[in-house]
Design a protein around this nucleic acid. Structure first.
Lengths: 152, 152
DNA sequence: CATTACCTTGACGTGCGCGTTAACGTTGCT
DNA sequence: AGCAACGTTAACGCGCACGTCAAGGTAATG
């Protein structure tokens, strides 16, 4: 019987299914340094944490949504690493200053990402406008010569 | 000496340069049916019209902005063809009904494009929100332990 | 008419992002 | 202990989107 709250650590099979990717793809991402190697069970099986799954999903989004190459994505998710490090070393000792520097860098990267998102969205808005105008031209044409047309 | 109003028809060299693509890429797009074969001069050199250039630019945008494959893009620019046909046959005879049907199809395609643009933009907005929250977390962390930080 | 710059069509090469197969180890259940 | 289900690495393959020659034709200039 299964834990109703799914095992918290997933083997690659379930992980792939939930992420809508193939096992091959997950291993490939790991190979390319997009995923920090997940923990393994004794036999060597990969175990994906919730954080891992989150990250996998962000990678997928960046690919599908923004059409980035894996290399570009790898560069972009630096900031995730910092975030996870923060969580991990939360109560760790020492080096507040160094961590602060890392966080500032992560903040910078994140800001750049936001900027580029905004740029893309601006262009997409322009594109949307163009398409809208096109629709209106079609409608004008149709109304002029085929007035009995139903509009949606 | 050059016409100040650039020759209206461009050879592949200038066309590529202006579109920020390579000649190879333009030929490749033509080969794949993304561009209707441009007119040629007597010797066989390709001549790109303003419409061609417009189309090339839309292809580039779809690739860079949306990350689509050439196959997907080819499917999407159907509606462009109709638009150009309209211009061409503007005062042509006959078949208003048939043309109307084409226009309705083009309108449909365009609507779908708008819908998908909207979907993408929605997701990008969500992503932007996530990034914004991340920034705020960074700022909170920095403010708590390194209060002497300058914000931008 | 010769030179130079630009173009043409093949054809092979390349990097990316995986798919697929092979050979084999692990886990869980009975 | 045995079997099925699941996992592992390694290696080859593949389609896409071009890059990069090679061998030659065309255009513009002096």
């Amino acid at each position: 019987m299964e834990d109703s709250q799914s095992h918290a650590y997933l083997q690659i099979g379930e992980a792939a299914e939930r992420a809508q990717l193939t096992q091959r793809t997950l291993r490939y991402y790991e190979e390319k340094g997009l995923l920090n190697s997940p923990t393994r069970m004794d036999g060597g099986f990969r175990l994906y944490s919730a954080d891992d799954m989150e990250r996998i999903d962000r990678i997928r989004q960046m690919k599908e949504l923004l059409g980035f190459s894996l290399a570009e994505i790898k560069a972009m998710i630096e900031s995730d690493d910092v975030r996870l490090q923060i969580r991990a070393e939360w109560r760790s000792d020492a080096d507040t200053a160094e961590k602060a520097e890392q966080i500032r860098r992560a903040r910078e990267v994140t800001l750049q990402q936001i900027t580029m998102l905004d740029q893309k969205m601006t262009k997409m808005n322009a594109m949307r406008e163009t398409l809208n105008e096109r629709i209106q031209k079609y409608d004008a044409w149709l109304l002029e010569r085929v007035p009995q047309t139903a509009r949606s």
